[in-house]
Design a protein around this nucleic acid. Structure first.
Lengths: 359, 359
DNA sequence: TGTTAGCACTCCTCTTTGTTGAGTGCTAAC
DNA sequence: GTTAGCACTCAACAAAGAGGAGTGCTAACA
C-alpha cells in the first residue's frame, strides 16, 4: 500500500488531536478541523488504509482511531516538527542554573527539575558514573582518633566522601602527607583505571603498616563501589497522575514505583542497540519498545550526557505514549545546545520542515 | 453523658474493624465479632450515644459508623496498646543500619526507608539542621586555580561541601594553613554561634587580603545558609496510593506533592504547641488537627531526634486517619529505644494495659 | 478513478428504573 | 436495662433503554 502525502497528513492530524483530547479521533473531526477540503467519507477510506498498515488502531468497532506504537514511531521519525521553546522562560531559568552551581550533580538535579516543570512529564536523571571520570583531587581529613574522612573530587566537581575507620590514630600531618601521595599518583586518572599495580606502587611509596593501608584502600574501594551504583534522581513523579492513561491507580503506582526504584532505572541509562536515535542524538523509545512491562504504556526520550567523550549518564523524559514528542524533543535539544560541554559533538540539527496544510 | 467501659469497648471495636476494612462498621458486626454477649440493638443504643458525643459519625443515614477525629484522639490518648514489633525483622535490619553507617544523614535516610517498609505508610524525615550541631572539622581543599572546596564536618559526621571561588590562586599549603586556623577557632562551636567578632578574630589571625577572606567567609556563610534549609527525605510516598481514602487521584496527587515539597514540610518538623505528646515523646496529629488543608485526611506521628539536648530534626509517619496507631507508635518507640543517643532522655514507658474483652 | 452522500449497523456511554441488602431508629415486650 | 421486631433509608448494583459518535459499504457523481 502507498503511504502518500495525504495519508501522512491524516496520521499527523490523528496524532495531534489525540494528543490533545486523549479520545479516539473520528473521520468527521479530521474533515472539520484538519483537512477541511476533504469529506469525512474520503478520510474514512484513508483511515481504513492506515489501519491496515498498522499505523492506527480502533479501540472498538464504532470508535474513532488511535495511533499505534508504529504510528508514533513513524511520526517521530518522519513527521515531527521541532519547536522553539518559550524563550523567555527557558533563558531565565538557564541563567539561574549556570550561575548557581559549578557542581555537575546538583546541576543535573536542577536540570531535571526544570525539564519536569517545562514538559509536565517526569524527568529521570541518572547521576554521573563517577567511575568513568577523572579524579581531580583526593584528600584525607582527620575526624577523630578512630576515623578519617576520605573526600574524592572528580572532574565535574562531584564530591563524594566516605568514612574510614583507622586502625591507629594518625596525625593530621600524616594524613596530609598520604593525601599528597595519593594525589600525585591518582589525580588525572579515572577510578576505573585504578588497579593492583598502582596500589602496590602507592603502598611502597607510603611504607605504612599493612593494616592502615589496607583499610584505607578498602575505603577507596568502597567509595568506588558506591560510585558505580547507578543512582537516579526523579523529578515531577506525580505528573504521571495527571494523565488519564494512568487514572487506574494500580497502574500509576507500579510505574511510580518503577521510576523510584534505583535498580531498574539502569535500563534507562543503558544504550539499547535496537532503538534508532534522532539526528540530534536523542533516543526515543515508544510503548512496547521498552523492555520492562511497567513501561509498555509509556514513551521515553533520553539524552546521554558525556564528559571527555565518554557517556557517563543520561537524562530522560518519561510520559504516556500519547506524549507531545515535539515539545519534549525540542526541550531536550535546546538543553543540549545550552550545555554544549555536556552534550559535546551532538549539536542538534534543527530540521526545518514546512508546516504543511495542518491548519 | 457517661463514657462508661462498655462505650469505650464499642469505640475500640469500631476503630479496630474500620482500620481493617475501611468500611463503616454496623452494630451487627460488633455484636457478632467483638461484644458477643450483647445484642445488636443494645449496641445500636450505645452507638447512638457515642455519635452524640462526637466520637463516631455516620457517612449517611443507613450506614454504619466511622470514627471521628475526636474518636481517634480519645483512642490514641486512652485506649491504645503498644505492640511488640516483629522482633526478628526489626533486629536484622537494625544491625545492618548500625554497622553500615556512621553518618547521621544517611542513617536517617535508611531509618526512613525502614519505617516506610515496616509500617506500609509514608515516612518523612527532616534532615538534621546542622546549624545547631557542633563543628567537628573544617577543611579547605585545593581544586584548581580559581576554586577551592570547603568541606564541613559536623557532629554526627554530616559532611557538607561547598565550592569557593578564589580571587587569586592559593597554594595547597596556604589552604592547609587556613584550615588549621579555622579549625582551631571554630571546631566545637555550632554554626549558629559564629558571629562577627569571631570572624574578625580569624581575619586578624590570618592576615589575608580582604578580597580572599571575604569570599571565604561568604562561602562559609552560604554553607550555613544552605544548612538552614529544612531539607526532607520522603520514603514510601507511593504507599499512599494503596489506601482507598486516596483512590481519588486528585487527592492523592495533592498529598504527594505536599509531601515532596520541601518548603511546606517545615510544618512537620516544627513542634506545634497545641498537640499533646504521648508519654514517650511522640507527637500525634490527627486529621483536621493538622493545619495544612492537604493533611486534613491524614494522621501524622512524629518523633523528634536530638543531639546534645537540642532538637535538630524529626521523623514522621504519614498515613490516612484510619491509621494503625498501635503499630506506628510501637515502631517509632522501638526505634527510639534502639537509638538512645538520638532520642536520649525520652525512653518510652511501655504502657502495659490488659487486652480486655476485645476478643 | 477518485470523491462523496446516504444509510444501516455497531457499540460505548449515559440515564433511568428497579432490586437488594446492610444498617438504622423506634417501640413494645421481657 | 436488654432485646426482638419492624418499618424505613439509602448506597450499590444490575438491567434496560435512549442517544450518539463513528464505522463500513454501496451507489452515484465529476
Amino acid at each position: 500500500m502507498q503511504l502518500n502525502e495525504r495519508k501522512l497528513q491524516i496520521l499527523q492530524a490523528i496524532i495531534m488531536n489525540y494528543l490533545e483530547t486523549a479520545e479516539p479521533v473520528g473521520s468527521r473531526t479530521i474533515s472539520r478541523h484538519f483537512l477541511t477540503e476533504l469529506s469525512s467519507a474520503t478520510i474514512r477510506n484513508e483511515m481504513s488504509d492506515l489501519e491496515e498498515m498498522g499505523l492506527i488502531e480502533q479501540p472498538h468497532t464504532s470508535a474513532g482511531r488511535v495511533p499505534s506504537s508504529k504510528g508514533y514511531r513513524l511520526y517521530v521519525d518522519e513527521l515531527m516538527h521541532r519547536q522553539e521553546m518559550d524563550q523567555e522562560q527557558l533563558v531565565v531559568v538557564r541563567d539561574i542554573l549556570r550561575s548557581r552551581t559549578m557542581q555537575l550533580d546538583s546541576l543535573l538535579r536542577e536540570i531535571g527539575d526544570l525539564l519536569a516543570t517545562l514538559t509536565k512529564y517526569t524527568a529521570v536523571v541518572s547521576m554521573p558514573q563517577i567511575k568513568k571520570v577523572e579524579l581531580k583531587h583526593i584528600q584525607l581529613m582527620p575526624l577523630d582518633e578512630k576515623t578519617a574522612i576520605l573526600v574524592v573530587v572528580t572532574d565535574g566537581n562531584i564530591v563524594r566522601n566516605h568514612m574510614i575507620p583507622l586502625q591507629q590514630p594518625l596525625q593530621p600531618q600524616e594524613l596530609y602527607y598520604i593525601s599528597d601521595v595519593l594525589n600525585r599518583e591518582l589525580s588525572g586518572l579515572s577510578l576505573s583505571a585504578m588497579d593492583l599495580s598502582l596500589i602496590q606502587k602507592i603502598k611502597k611509596e607510603l611504607r605504612l603498616e599493612a593494616g592502615t593501608m589496607d583499610s584505607l584502600l578498602d575505603a577507596i574501594n568502597d567509595t568506588l563501589q558506591y560510585a558505580d551504583d547507578v543512582d537516579t534522581y526523579t523529578a515531577g513523579a506525580t505528573n504521571i497522575l495527571n494523565f488519564p492513561e494512568f487514572s487506574d491507580i494500580a497502574k500509576a503506582r507500579s510505574l511510580m514505583d518503577f521510576l523510584n526504584g534505583k535498580d531498574q532505572m539502569k535500563y534507562l541509562s543503558g544504550e539499547s542497540s535496537t532503538e534508532k536515535s534522532t539526528g540530534s542524538g536523542l533516543q526515543i523509545r515508544i510503548g512496547k519498545e521498552n523492555v520492562p512491562a511497567q513501561l509498555h504504556d509509556c514513551s521515553i526520550v533520553t539524552a546521554n550526557y558525556r564528559y571527555n567523550d565518554q557517556n557517563i549518564g543520561s537524562i530522560s523524559i518519561v510520559g504516556p505514549m500519547r506524549m507531545d514528542y515535539d515539545r519534549v524533543v525540542s526541550a531536550l535539544e535546546n538543553l543540549m545546545k545550552d550545555f554544549p560541554d555536556l552534550f559535546a559533538g551532538d549539536i542538534p540539527k534543527i530540521i526545518q520542515e514546512d508546516k504543511h496544510d495542518t491548519e
